[in-house]
């Protein structure tokens, strides 16, 4: 396995293949800035929760030149930030549960958003793990699986975590199976 490209996003910085990308905004607003700069033609972005926005813009920047066969992501807090936003719509005497928030109350939705946008028809999976390193053996096992390896040449894999508003981090890589 070899890593050919990597992006890291925190609320205050974006680093692509070791090079810092200068951004003006911070936190959630920075994800919108990245969308406007690198994507622009996918209005569904604005309906996404923060976790999906994070994974989506990271994938869009990383996959400009590359097509991948699978998407394997993980984090520690699942979809807790959006779960809390959804809970707020049915709390404090109100009862207007938001359908738009409800559809993002699963962490694996972000893998689907990326797969739809990038026409990924292979495996898409999302794991809830203690720490980023725990994903490595899963990626290795997936890529060395005899049943899949003949068709699985490139994978988008990594960590996308968002536990609270304006608090997130992502590290995604393009990994080749040779």
């Amino acid at each position: 396995m070899r890593v050919t490209h990597q992006i890291e996003i925190s609320p205050t910085s974006v680093v692509l293949d070791g090079q810092t990308i200068v951004v003006e905004a911070v936190g959630d607003a920075m994800l919108v800035e990245l969308y406007r700069r690198y994507v622009c033609d996918y209005p569904k972005f604005f309906k996404m929760d923060t976790l999906s926005r994070l994974g989506f813009v990271a994938a869009e920047i990383l996959l400009k030149e590359t097509k991948v066969d699978a998407v394997i992501l993980a984090n520690r807090s699942a979809s807790i930030k959006n779960d809390n936003d959804y809970l707020a719509t049915i709390s404090e005497g109100r009862y207007y549960p938001s359908p738009a928030l409800f559809v993002y109350t699963l962490p694996n939705i972000v893998t689907g958003e990326i797969a739809i946008r990038r026409h990924v028809q292979g495996e898409t999976s999302f794991y809830v793990l203690d720490k980023p390193d725990d994903l490595d053996p899963i990626i290795r096992a997936t890529m060395s699986n005899d049943l899949q390896s003949s068709n699985l040449q490139t994978v988008l894999a990594g960590w996308v975590e968002c536990s609270e508003p304006n608090r997130f981090n992502a590290k995604l890589q393009i990994i080749w199976n040779n």
Binding site: K47, Y96, P97, S98, P99, A100, V103
Partner: peptide, 13 residues
């Protein structure tokens, strides 16, 4: 279809 549900909620709310 999700937007349709949001519009139904909007009419109620």
């Amino acid at each position: 279809s999700i937007d349709a549900l949001e519009l139904i909620m909007l009419l109620d709310r």
